[in-house]
């Protein structure tokens, strides 16, 4: 299959890229890892007249850990870099748990974290992780930079809040409020398939109690789902079998899955409940072991 014809530009700076996007007037697409865009071009689901390849722009592939525990991920940081980062496992276990479950190992060598956020696929892994962590996307346009919380970035299936001449240049994960714990579980028929259901659950623990929590759900709605009530129910107390069970029920209520070839809606809700319980129970037992 051949992609449709397009004008191809590979600018050397972000400013040039923004200029090109402005010229493109809403029809241009940014090419980063290309692991979703190129298949879409080949299948002719997309035929943008202009592709702005940002791979030649230096200084966008960073994965930086600040002293306060916050993390910055550049627009050209590939999934594989996150998967191989020893520091990520210590600093942010929820992200580390997801890094090796995105697509397949070969796709992870090209695909980018920020690209996955901007692509806004309801079955994408990273947006749910960022919803759970309270992370943001930094968008740069002609008028400078702005930070958009990922929970507000994703509007619907493949729709994001960026204007046509903004580029997601970086993602930021805020500093944890205590010890960052959590996990990511994904049910897929085989590696590389879209998720049947996946759950990202993150909790920061301070003095034995949950100081901050977040739960993001994958593939159970028309966009990444934020189980904010479930997460809020955990804050302020310790993780107990009762608090975990109640949060799992609340998360399952938020899920609005559809029955399809991957499973029935009831089954998918059941998986949400199971995954929330499983992640939080693992966190709770790791805390008991450490105590």
């Amino acid at each position: 299959m051949y992609p449709p014809r397009f004008r191809y530009e590979a600018p050397q700076t972000i400013d040039e890229a923004i200029q090109l996007l402005s010229e493109g007037g809403g029809d241009a697409k940014i090419l980063a890892g290309g692991q979703s865009l190129i298949p879409l071009l080949k299948l002719r689901f997309a035929s943008p007249p202009l592709l702005v390849d940002i791979n030649e722009i230096p200084g966008l592939d960073h994965l930086d850990f600040a002293a306060d525990g916050s993390i910055r991920i550049g627009a050209l940081c590939r999934h594989a870099a996150l998967e191989r980062s020893e520091e990520l496992r210590v600093r942010q276990p929820t992200m580390a748990a997801a890094a090796g479950l995105v697509a397949d190992p070969i796709v992870r060598n090209r695909g980018t974290f920020v690209g996955s956020l901007c692509h806004a696929d309801p079955q994408g892994d990273w947006a749910a992780v960022m919803v759970a962590l309270g992370g943001s996307l930094v968008a740069q346009g002609p008028n400078g930079r702005r930070s958009i919380p990922v929970k507000d970035l994703v509007h619907g299936p493949f729709q994001n809040a960026l204007t046509h001449n903004e580029i997601g240049v970086e993602a930021t994960v805020p500093a944890p409020q205590g010890t960052p714990l959590g996990g990511y579980l994904k049910l897929e028929r085989r590696i590389g398939d879209f998720a049947t259901v996946a759950v990202a659950a993150s909790v920061d623990i301070e003095g034995g109690a949950v100081s901050r929590a977040g739960i993001g759900l994958v593939a159970v709605g028309s966009k990444t789902m934020d189980a904010s009530d479930a997460a809020a129910s955990l804050v302020g107390g310790p993780l107990t079998p009762e608090s975990i069970s109640s949060a799992a029920d609340l998360a399952a209520e938020v899920a609005k899955p559809r029955s399809d070839h991957r499973g029935s809606a009831d089954y998918k809700k059941h998986i949400v409940r199971t995954f929330v319980t499983r992640i939080l129970t693992r966190v709770s037992s790791s805390l008991e072991k450490a105590a």
Partner: peptide
């Protein structure tokens, strides 16, 4: 498969495996 699933088109790009059906030659 020509749809980024099968990996038959895998080549090494600067030593790392990539699916060559999912990358532009200009890149």
């Amino acid at each position: 498969c020509d749809t980024t699933n099968c990996g038959a088109c895998t080549v090494l790009l600067d030593g790392e495996p990539v699916k060559s059906c999912t990358m532009l030659a200009v890149q």
